[in-house]
């Protein structure tokens, strides 16, 4: 387990991998589902792996194979896939101030998913500069490989796996909300932030419940930001107890 405050570590990439382990609980079951659906839609194992390796964006991959399988025009499928992924444009600028100079960053951006962003946004500022490239490499590679491996599992033996251990596929994804709640709680530093973050969480939840998952993230984040600008509440809830060292 990794203490948030401890920053002196011998290998950044190892710390990154260790801290990305909770992501696997969400990635692998969803990737297995993708592999299974992709195989059922008529895509071969190699094609499924190519989609997971190259596009590497969960929701849009489901949409891509679903639209192709239902006979949608290719241009529309590609356009919708890109539209769903537009939310990624705000991720890199948000972590840019904490990225030390390195020629690796352009390549590493392929691994900047929703979840890796959430983790990096919280952890990079706490790490010493010389560990950040390694940390991101470790975290992003583990997440990427787990997504590819999960897709392979799903494409090859998804039906068998889901019928054999149905509960595992239901329990493991809880690692994602558990991780995100740990990442977001330290940001509830004032009433204003609490209200805005609360709005964002509530709207994303509502969107998912009403089947609008794809638009949920950008819409909820925009509403939360709007709430932050519109409301003027006293800044402090209470003095912070403990907190990060």
């Amino acid at each position: 387990m990794s203490d948030i405050g401890i920053s002196r570590r011998p290998h950044g990439w190892l710390t990154g991998m260790r801290e990305a382990i909770p992501l696997l609980g969400g990635y692998i079951p969803v990737a297995i589902s993708f592999g299974l659906i992709s195989a059922q839609a008529g895509f071969s194992t190699i094609e499924t792996l190519a989609i997971s390796t190259l596009i590497y964006a969960g929701a849009s991959q489901f949409l891509f194979v679903g639209m192709i399988a239902s006979g949608s025009p290719l241009w529309l499928t590609v356009a919708m896939t890109l539209l769903i992924n537009v939310r990624h444009v705000v991720y890199a600028p948000n972590i840019a101030p904490w990225l030390p100079k390195s020629r690796w960053w352009p390549w590493l951006m392929h691994g900047l998913t929703d979840q890796v962003f959430a983790l990096a946004h919280s952890r990079l500022p706490q790490l010493p500069e010389h560990q950040r490239v390694g940390w991101f490499l470790g975290a992003a590679l583990l997440a990427w490989f787990s997504w590819i491996a999960g897709s392979l599992l799903g494409a090859v033996g998804g039906e068998w796996l889901t019928s054999r251990w149905p509960l595992l596929g239901e329990v493991m994804p809880f690692a994602l909300p558990a991780l995100f709640v740990v990442l977001i709680v330290p940001r509830f530093t004032s009433r204003r932030w609490a209200a805005a973050l609360g709005v964002s969480i509530a709207i994303a939840l509502l969107c998912t419940l009403t089947g609008l998952t794809n638009i949920g993230i950008p819409l909820a984040a925009a509403c939360g930001a709007l709430c932050f600008y519109l409301i003027r509440l006293p800044e402090t809830i209470a003095p912070r107890k403990g907190g990060h060292p």
Binding site: N94, L197, I203, T208, I217, L219, A220
Partner: peptide, 20 residues
């Protein structure tokens, strides 16, 4: 952008809250 970053994380949390 400073505000949008945490809001995106909160939104990802909201989306992931719905159980399978």
């Amino acid at each position: 952008l400073v505000i949008l970053g945490p809001m995106m994380i909160a939104a990802v949390l909201g989306v992931s809250l719905v159980p399978r």
